[in-house]
């Protein structure tokens, strides 16, 4: 029972530079971010299966989650 997290850009540094990581489904995205050590505050946009979702979204089996951060800024 897992979901895939794909951090964009500089957020990859939180998962050792990998493109994606598997996490357990059945928890909120915020909880998963906590386990991965990604500060949820720096995530600007969450896209789950191509739909925008809030950070308290409950992860489902097979979800693909894209995380967009604003590390560099405007």
């Amino acid at each position: 029972m897992s979901a895939i997290i794909r951090p964009a850009g500089a957020l990859k540094s939180y998962i050792a530079g990998e493109n994606e990581i598997e996490v357990d489904s059945g928890q909120t995205l915020k909880q998963a971010l906590g386990i991965l050590g990604i500060p949820s505050e720096i995530v600007a946009l969450v896209i789950v299966n191509e739909e925008q979702q809030p950070k308290d979204y409950l992860l489902q089996e097979g979800d693909v989650v894209k995380l967009i951060a604003v590390i560099g800024g405007g």
Binding site: A8, K12, N19, A44, L45, I47, K66, I68, V70, G73
Partner: peptide, 14 residues
Amino acid sequence: TGLKEWQTYGTTIV
């Protein structure tokens, strides 16, 4: 990764 979202929203992502 993120090109599609950047293009969709531009700076209004923030």
